[in-house]
Design a protein around this nucleic acid. Structure first.
Length: 237
DNA sequence: GCGACAG
DNA sequence: ATCTTGTCGC
């Protein structure tokens, strides 16, 4: 039910050409990404993730929607699909977005904002998976990754809530944010139709007591259960 | 040229 | 990402 705009077709063909086409697309799309404050206060947030067995092309994609005020899960959608693209640093969106869009189509609710397991502007060409997907979904998106792709930062203070800017070529591209005391930070960056400060605030708002914010954590649990073929979750397909 | 490199 | 048990530290 939830819809999206099919901005462009996905690169196909021999692996060496895939990479060239993908980078060309990123350079063509990067100017469409808009980093700006939210237009309205979000009530729902979605978390996305994919899982797969090593050396296999089958991927399990899932999206979990939660209410921002209570963090209760209000909808889940999952699909078993096939990855049309290999994992290449900097080109993650081409591997994960297609199957995530399939799961998105199954949602009845259209989430107000979407969190991705990866980066948004904290990307060599400023168009990581969160930004790229934001263009298709045409709604606020941001990335919250567990490790750095590009950029440098000073270690934020050890208490939860502290953060320091990540820079790349003199540009602020995101933030290293402490979501839990004395635990490694997560890397937050705006994707599309949102700004860094808001992305940080939302990440902190999604606290469940773990380093990884709830939307991503629940999506991760969902796709792993799907991959392992656990009973209760097959019904949600 | 060498090293780094989201999931 | 995935494969996996125990183990160090608060």
């Amino acid at each position: 039910m939830a819809h999206y705009v099919h901005l462009h077709d996905w690169p196909t063909g021999p692996v060496e050409r895939l990479s060239t086409e993908a980078v060309l697309l990123q350079n063509r799309l990067r100017d469409q990404v808009r980093i700006e404050p939210l237009t309205k206060t979000p009530e729902t947030i979605a978390g996305c993730d994919i899982s797969f067995n090593k050396f296999e092309e089958t991927v399990y994609a899932g999206i979990v929607v939660l209410r921002l005020d209570t963090l209760e899960t209000i909808e889940e959608a999952g699909v078993v699909s096939t990855a049309p693209f290999p994992y290449i640093p900097g080109l993650l969106s081409f591997r994960e977005i297609p199957s995530l869009l399939e799961a998105w189509q199954k949602l009845k609710i259209e989430p107000d904002v979407v969190m991705f397991d990866g980066h948004g502007t904290a990307h060599p060409r400023r168009i990581g998976i969160a930004s790229h997907a934001g263009l298709f979904l045409n709604r606020p998106t941001f990335g919250c990754g567990k490790s750095v792709l590009v950029g440098k930062y000073d270690e934020p203070a050890p208490e939860r809530g502290n953060w320091s800017p990540m820079t790349h070529y003199r540009e602020v591209i995101g933030a290293a944010l402490r979501t839990k005391n004395k635990v490694n930070p997560v890397y937050v960056s705006p994707g599309h139709l949102i700004d860094l400060e808001t992305a940080i605030a939302l990440t902190l708002q999604c606290n469940g007591g773990y380093r990884i914010p709830e939307p991503t954590r629940r999506a991760h649990n969902l796709v792993n259960a799907l991959r392992r073929g656990e009973q209760g979750d097959l019904s949600k397909l």
